[in-house]
Nucleic acid binder design. Structure first.
Length: 474
RNA sequence: GCCCCCAUCGUCUAGUGGCCUAGGACACCACCCUUUCAAGGUGGCGGCACGGGUUCGAAUCCCGUUGGGGGUGCCA
């Protein structure tokens, strides 16, 4: 355990979106920083490409904020950019050279391959070690890997040991003098006095190199914790190309931040007790890196969706209405924007709330209320009108609803009575009315919908359906 | 090739030598409820990869096999 204040660094590389795997790692760091009163340090790996796309960095900050990691929080520090420490990267490399811990090498890639072919061992054979080369154009600075074994003490995996003879003298400075990522990364961590490095498992094989660098630089290495990666159904690491990994996209699809956070935390870890649905405060209290699973976890959108449904249902109706607002005013909404009536939606909201698992499903559930001409699904219409009594029933309903009291109880009783006349139970009797009015066979409870829709519009649609049936060939 | 990591229902997990006839969740199926669809309730299906040890006793410890993943750049 390094003797320094708790500082955890999260170092994503901006790529134009924020990866769900990165989100989980950030959450791990965040939970620990909050519980132990440490600092969450955000350090962005700014590549040339990322530097030309400042909105990528902003995207990371926005996505972090969405999952509850705010720059204004006292535990939050940063963002820092790797380039801010560039001069220190080179300076550290020079110190290593002067101390004899690094040396120059003028071998080209081709020469290295040639030698490898001769020895039968792939890679660089450390043959420049004792040639005493000085700095020069085209010469790289290599770290002199010491003899022995490097043991990485990992909070998740325990002691992992590496035989140094399997680690070749790696490059610190390129032929043009610029630092390699590995060096930059370690120097940044040393400079910022990072105490804990919590990151994805894929970095474990490079950790001995980093640890040797820490030690060569005269610093006590951090506590390492390599958490398992997130995989797809093929058990491959989640990738931008193949998989849907952007948290921004899940947000746009109407996943709630709390649900996402909760679900992400159950991947590789489980809260104590009877349920996995737990508040962030519980997670902060209970989360331990030592308890994180060792094997990769499949990011299961179905389960995420189920969590999301639970979170939606746990909201109060007014919270739900508020959460739906952006999805009902979106550009791709199925109705003309000016036809949307918030108070009509409010009346229906409670009925919709138990019927969606994602906020982006809401619009399709209430669209018939705001569409001038609710499109009738042909298959549904055909199916429902194939019942011989449907036409007569619809005609009778149109008549009865002209005078019925306009509330859902009365509307239900009226239809129930008409259905009785045809020997139909309510479940069957409501079907043609539902299709006539909403265009579909499924949807929110019918009579409540009619009540909200109003008498005039209901009658218009029922009559239109009768006409439509009459117009169709028998 | 070499190195490292991993292995409990389809999936995510609980389990740290006896409370395990392996518990929960998602998914799936059935039933109940019901105004369609949901939600809710009840029940069901389904797993310790394999082989050796150690032990009175192993999902749990050790070794091996098999299978998966990752790393191995003058990429980040």
């Amino acid at each position: 355990m390094p003797d320094r204040p708790l500082r955890l660094r999260f170092a994503p590389s901006p790529t134009g979106f924020f990866h769900v795997g990165g989100a989980r790692t950030a959450l791990y760091n965040w939970a620990i920083a909050q519980r132990l009163g440490g600092t969450f340090v955000l350090r962005i790996e700014d590549t040339d490409e990322a530097r030309n796309q400042p909105e990528w960095t902003q995207g990371i900050i926005d996505a972090l904020a969405w999952i509850g990691i705010h720059t204004a929080d006292p535990h939050f520090e940063g963002p820092y950019f790797q380039s801010e420490f560039a001069t220190e990267h080179v300076a550290a490399a020079m110190r290593l050279f002067q101390a004899g811990r690094a040396y120059y090498c003028d071998l080209t890639g081709d020469q290295i391959q040639e030698r490898a072919k001769l020895t039968g061992k792939p890679g660089y054979d450390n043959s420049s070690r004792d040639r005493g080369l000085e700095a020069g154009p085209g010469r790289v600075l290599r770290f002199r890997v010491p003899e022995g074994t490097t043991v990485v003490d990992d909070l998740v995996r325990g002691a992992v040991s590496f035989d140094n003879s399997n680690i070749e003298d790696f490059v610190l400075l390129r032929g043009n003098g610029t630092p390699m990522f590995l060096l930059a990364n370690v120097v940044d961590d040393v400079t910022m006095r990072i105490s804990h490095v919590v990151r994805a498992e894929e970095h474990l094989p490079n950790t001995p190199k980093q640890q040797m660098l820490w030690q060569a630089l005269g610093a006590v290495p951090p506590v390492w914790a390599h958490v398992p990666v997130l995989v797809n159904e093929q058990r491959k690491k989640l990738s931008k190309r193949r998989d849907k990994v952007a948290v921004e996209q899940y947000r746009a699809e109407g996943f709630l931040a709390d649900a996402m956070v909760n679900y992400l935390m159950t991947l590789g870890w489980a809260p104590s007790g009877e349920t996995e649905i737990v508040a962030w405060s519980r997670i902060v209290d209970e989360f331990r890196l030592e308890d994180v699973n060792h094997s990769p976890a499949f990011f299961d959108v179905k389960k995420l969706t189920a969590f999301n449904g639970e979170y939606i249902r746990a909201m109060t109706v007014s919270q739900f209405i508020e959460a739906c607002a952006p999805f009902l005013a979106a550009d791709d909404v199925p109705w003309q924007r000016e036809r949307f009536n918030p108070s009509v939606f409010s009346e229906m909201a409670e009925l919709v709330q138990t019927r969606v698992a994602r906020l982006d499903e809401v619009a399709a559930m209430v669209d018939f209320l705001f569409l001038a001409d609710a499109p009738i699904d042909d298959a549904a219409f055909a199916k429902v009108m194939a019942v011989p009594t449907s036409l007569a029933l619809l005609t009778e309903v149109a008549k009865a609803y002209e005078v019925a009291e306009w509330n859902h109880e009365a509307l239900k009783e009226t239809l129930e009575a008409i259905g009785d006349g045809y020997g139909l139970k309510l479940g069957k009797a409501q079907a043609p009315v539902r299709v006539a009015v909403t265009g579909r066979t499924i949807g929110p409870p019918l009579f409540e919908s009619l009540q909200v829709l109003g008498r005039d519009e209901t009658l218009r649609r029922v009559r239109a359906a009768v006409d439509r049936y009459g117009a169709a060939p028998a």
